[in-house]
């Protein structure tokens, strides 16, 4: 059908497209990361050592995987406060399967992922179907999983001493010198990035965050896709739980609270908007790295832990405010 005249005919203007502005944001975050690395390298000769850099990456992995998952719900305009405790709950379930039931490691891994997926699915159900605000729904899941972890274990850690393979999942070195946990984190980053930027799930993810009602009125089953997205976040929390348990060679039921906030902070530093519709996995990875480089660097410079927390808080404010200023200029 042809109505009149030509449509796309004017020269391509230099007006910013979404991809370009996202690229700028990532460049900004990446530059901050590089500057941090340079500053710490100059301040202390211990910082830019191979072993220290590996240490930074290892300490990024768990929070990083949580942050990857959190990126999905945050782009829908939602939030998941249960990240940390779902992670713990999953690691406890791994412990139950491997140590209590004596089943082989692969069952434990699948069980851990399923535990995370189930928690995410329930959160999604509450948010999408029952219209409970994400903050409240996931706060409730946070408390439920925290409590369950303690109940199941009797508040005592579960150790994985029967099968030495389990500890190798995170800390084994398939590539010499580099613990598996780093490889797994980066691999998950690639997978998350593909899901978000290339697949139908990712498209609906951005559509939901951009305008949920318009998406619904375009005939998209928004309830279904929201549940899918919360479930994905749960799966990432489950995987984080397995990595955590493997690294500690134990499931620690009292760990995990507070991790969700660090993960959310990493996502936000990476340029993902809490109001939804904007964000990227690469940004989240950079955000997570900024957090751990900062913590590690300050540690090496012998800054007391109390002050490290203060400084990280201030950095979050600066990062987010810089992003707001940049957007306002557009």
């Amino acid at each position: 059908m042809k109505i009149a005249g030509k449509g796309i005919s004017q020269p391509i203007s230099s007006k910013q497209t979404g991809a370009q502005s996202g690229f700028k944001q990532k460049l900004l975050a990446f530059a901050s990361l590089i500057i941090l690395v340079i500053v710490f390298s100059v301040a202390s000769s211990n910082f830019f050592q191979f072993s220290n850099l590996v240490g930074i990456l290892v300490s990024t992995a768990v929070i990083g995987v949580l942050a990857l998952g959190a990126t999905f719900v945050i782009i829908t305009g939602g939030i998941d406060l249960a990240l940390g405790t779902v992670m713990t709950f999953s690691s406890v379930m791994v412990g139950v399967i491997i140590t209590f039931w004596g089943l082989p490691v692969p069952f434990g891994i699948v069980g851990g992922i399923l535990a995370g997926a189930l928690c995410g699915f329930i959160s999604g159900l509450m948010v999408a179907k029952m219209n409970i605000p994400p903050f409240i729904a996931t706060l409730a899941i946070m408390m439920v999983t925290k409590g369950l972890s303690l109940v199941i274990t009797g508040a005592k850690p579960i150790y994985f001493n029967d099968d030495p393979i389990f500890a190798k999942i995170a800390m084994g070195k398939m590539i010499p010198g580099i613990p598996n946990t780093i490889i797994i984190f980066l691999l998950l980053g690639v997978i998350a990035s593909i899901i978000l930027s290339k697949t139908i799930i990712g498209r609906y993810n951005f559509a939901l965050g951009s305008n949920e009602e318009a998406t619904r009125l375009s005939g998209v089953n928004t309830v279904k896709w929201k549940i899918v997205i919360y479930t994905i976040t749960g799966i990432f929390s489950g995987i984080a739980g397995i990595l955590m348990a493997s690294r500690l060679n134990s499931a620690q039921p009292s760990l995990g609270t507070g991790y969700e906030l660090e993960a959310i902070a990493a996502v936000v530093i990476g340029g993902t908007s809490l109001s939804g519709g904007v964000g990227s996995i690469l940004g989240t990875i950079i955000g997570a790295l900024i957090m751990s480089v900062l913590t590690n660097g300050l540690q090496i410079m012998s800054v007391a832990q109390e002050w490290r927390t203060v400084i990280v808080g201030v950095v979050i404010i600066i990062a987010v405010y810089a992003d707001i200023l940049r957007r306002r200029k557009q």
Partner: peptide, 26 residues
């Protein structure tokens, strides 16, 4: 409309199934 998204995305939002392959790849 998804006003912060581009025309291409808005054009396709009601018919994503037409633009994906068997693996859900867009």
């Amino acid at each position: 409309l998804l006003v912060d998204m581009d025309i291409s995305m808005n054009n396709a939002i009601a018919s994503f199934y037409k633009f994906r392959n068997a693996f859900g790849w867009m």
